[in-house]
């Protein structure tokens, strides 16, 4: 009759699925209510409701500069990685040149090398170049880390697009630049935006490289949090965690919207 392996014990599967979803989401979400507690220590269930810890996050000098630094680094990383990555994806999918495989491997390798090793390698040299402990050093490091995501996202949309559209544009008299501007780029734009969002998030959440690449004068939010988490923790850390999660989630929802609208054009 119908596909035999698709008639499992339904209840078992649904139960297992619900349990796994719970396991995936619940542990992280436990932090969110804790950030509103009136108690002076992290407690669950939270007591009362207050926004004090959020106020503390944006008024305390260390936390608030960390927040601002994180935004700045993530934004600059997103811009740099998206430009470099989009160009590289175009070259890798359309170009035919000697050493293409090697370049491809180089571009993807930041995904493979353990992040602690990347951090130490970069830190060792960036100190000598005098860009360690600064905005520039961290943006450069995060861009290397984010590049693979942009390249894969853009390359995917390039590989799946219908190149006959470009051919049609050429036949209608468009020169290559016009054809790219009006045909190719709009089609791969969702891929480019995907890459941009992924690189922003990569930088926004990154902590290991940032631990090395920041200094007492220049810290990001995750590094500030890392310093706190290992000592006594007050609910501000829960507020910071919630903020980190909310920004990421909003960006991912944005991404879904971008992708939803893509095929409509």
């Amino acid at each position: 009759m119908s596909d035999s392996w698709r008639q499992p014990r339904r209840i078992l599967m649904v139960g297992l699925g619900a349990l796994t979803v719970f396991y995936l989401l619940a542990p992280t979400l436990v932090i969110v209510p804790m950030s509103f507690t009136e108690a002076r220590i992290l407690s669950f269930p939270p007591e009362g409701f207050t926004l004090d810890w959020y106020e503390r996050m944006v008024t305390d000098r260390q936390w608030s500069t960390g927040l601002a630094n994180s935004f700045q680094v993530a934004l600059l990383t997103a811009i740099l990685a998206t430009v470099l990555g989009t160009l590289a994806a175009l070259g890798l999918t359309r170009g035919r040149f000697l050493g293409r495989t090697a370049v491809n491997a180089l571009v993807l390798s930041p995904l493979i090398v353990p992040v602690v090793v990347i951090a130490i390698g970069m830190f060792g040299l960036f100190v000598q170049w005098r860009i360690a402990g600064s905005l520039v050093g961290l943006v450069v490091a995060h861009t290397a880390l984010a590049l693979p995501f942009v390249v894969v996202a853009v390359a995917t949309s390039l590989r799946t697009m219908d190149r006959n559209l470009e051919l049609a544009a050429a036949n209608l008299g468009a020169d290559p630049r016009r054809s790219f501007q009006h045909i190719t780029f709009p089609i791969i734009l969702p891929g480019v935006l995907t890459g941009a969002i992924f690189s922003f998030i990569t930088s926004w959440d990154e902590v290991v490289i940032a631990i090395f690449m920041t200094s007492a004068r220049f810290r990001t939010l995750p590094v500030e949090m890392w310093e706190q988490v290992r000592q006594a923790v007050d609910p501000t850390v829960a507020a910071v965690s919630t903020t980190l999660l909310v920004v990421t989630t909003v960006l991912l929802v944005l991404l879904l919207v971008v992708r939803r609208q893509a095929p409509a054009q």
């Binding site: 995936l24 989401l25 992280t28 932090i31 992924f198 998030i201 926004w204 959440d205 902590v207 995750p222 949090m225 890392w226 988490v229 965690s241 980190l244 999660l245 990421t248 989630t249 991912l252």
Partner: peptide
């Protein structure tokens, strides 16, 4: 969602 949210958090 968890894939892309902060490892530290």
């Amino acid at each position: 969602l968890p894939f892309w949210s902060s490892l530290l958090v």
